[in-house]
């Protein structure tokens, strides 16, 4: 994580919102190759909005987004996935009437070849999914669905994975499982940018973190520093 390296994702002064309201005002975020970066902050801080704006699901009104040095501001998602960035939304992140295998095939839709090979690799990472690949995603438990959602996004072997609250509404055991997988994926070389409610857990896992409040950068730093910071402890860790 050398600071000298070029950032993989460079969000600079991003402003975006819905209707006449700017939810985000000049937010800047960087993710370096191989990092796990967490964005924490209170509800309504604009964390999910930031993910959507980066991923071209919401128009960016000002500022720039660069991926590996190339401008990608306001590019549509179907083009972004081909540039090595994938995204797992917080909710509705699997295709319920499709089987596990079909979900993964759709995940690899943008691949030119090697879909079967990649599916084998992904399923090795998620043995629980490999057990019954013909099961419809709609019949899976919440935790398995979340795993499938992540697995789907991995089908393109992205350099950078965006996770929007991967632990939301999961049982404590599944939360553990999901974070373990995140660490595993990262260990295999994929950088991760993650929005989390579960701030302590997320920061424990991360290299660096950002605190967002009311649509603006509030704090940033090494994850360890943030965990020790009084302000973070008081406001976001409930201590």
């Amino acid at each position: 994580m050398t600071a000298a390296a070029m950032p993989l994702l460079d969000v600079a002064g991003l402003t975006a919102g819905y209707g006449g309201v700017d939810i985000l005002r000049g937010v800047s975020i960087r993710v370096y190759p191989g990092e796990i970066v967490s964005i924490i902050g209170p509800n309504g801080a604009g964390k999910s909005t930031l993910m959507k704006a980066i991923f071209g699901l919401l128009p960016v009104r000002a500022g720039q987004v660069r991926l590996a040095g190339q401008e990608i501001t306001n590019q549509p998602p179907e083009r972004l996935v081909r540039r090595g960035m994938c995204y797992v939304p917080q909710t509705d992140n699997v295709f319920p009437s499709l089987t596990i295998r079909e979900n993964l095939e759709i995940g690899g839709f943008a691949r030119d070849g090697g879909r079967g090979e990649r599916m084998g690799q992904v399923l090795r990472l998620f043995p629980a999914l490999a057990e019954r690949p013909g099961e419809r995603a709609g019949r899976l438990s919440g935790g398995q669905r979340q795993l499938l959602a992540i697995a789907r996004a991995l089908m393109l072997d992205p350099q950078l994975l965006l996770l929007d609250e991967p632990s939301a509404s999961l049982s404590p055991k599944m939360v553990e499982m999901v974070f373990e997988k995140v660490a595993e994926i990262n260990a295999a070389g994929t950088a991760i940018l993650m929005v989390e409610q579960n701030a302590r857990h997320a920061l424990t896992l991360s290299h660096r973190g950002y605190v967002l409040a009311a649509g603006e950068n509030r704090l940033e730093g090494e994850a360890r520093q943030l965990l020790d910071s009084d302000e973070v402890r008081r406001l976001y860790l409930g201590e």
């Binding site: 991923f55 996935v81 759709i106």
Partner: peptide, 11 residues
Amino acid sequence: DNPDLARVSGI
């Protein structure tokens, strides 16, 4: 099933 997720998946 989900047009938004379809776009996000590169469709």
